[in-house]
Simulated assay, not measured.
Amino acid sequence: MQPKNIVEEIISQFEGVIPKASWGETSLFYNPGKILPNGVYFCTIKEKNGDNDKASELDREGAFRLSIGISKITYEKKFGVKPKRPSKGCIIDTGHDFTALDELMPHPIYGWMSWVQVLSPSESTFANIFPLIAEAHSNAVIKFNKKTANK
């Protein structure tokens, strides 16, 4: 799959999703009516390394990262106890090869916040992790509704 296909699929399957692209990353926000400046993000696609984010070697030809913010419960069911927050410029310590393609694993920097990643997912892997995207979207809806309850 290509990044644009993933963005198109998520936008077509879920209501209120607004994509925002900047610095080689597309963030997907839940923000119906654009009530909030950005909304609540739940999924990102990153296509290049950042100054403090080189663990996945995204500068390789065709490599990109699909990141998904899942619940703590789901994260712990899949990977065990969440890791500690890494020091600035460092990555979490889980023993995963953060350069492996087409494999669900903790996000190398934000795993401590229950974020997961898949590098360059195939169509079958994307189909398998789609329930995680649905969960992340549902959680974003709840957070959005809390943030906008008094607006």
Rank of each mutant, 00 (worst) to 15 (best):
T94V: 05
P108R: 08
F144V: 08
N128R: 15
H107Q: 03
V116L: 01
Q117G: 02
H107M: 07
F79D: 10
F98Q: 03
G69D: 13
P106L: 10
R60Q: 14
A140H: 04
F144H: 13
H137V: 03
T74W: 12
K82M: 15
G69A: 13
I92V: 13
H137G: 06
D59Q: 12
E76F: 15
N128Y: 05
I92M: 06
E57D: 14
R65F: 02
Y75W: 13
L101T: 12
T99Q: 08
L101I: 15
G80M: 09
P108A: 07
I133C: 01
C90T: 01
P121Q: 08
I70P: 02
V116S: 10
D93E: 12
G80C: 04
K72Y: 08
S138V: 00
S122G: 01
I68R: 12
I73T: 14
W115L: 13
I70H: 14
A127F: 02
R85G: 02
P121W: 11
A63W: 05
A136H: 01
M105P: 04
F126K: 07
M113I: 11
K84W: 00
A127Y: 13
K82Y: 04
S71L: 13
A127L: 11
L132A: 04
F126P: 03
F130K: 09
I68G: 04
E123L: 09
I133L: 04
I133Q: 03
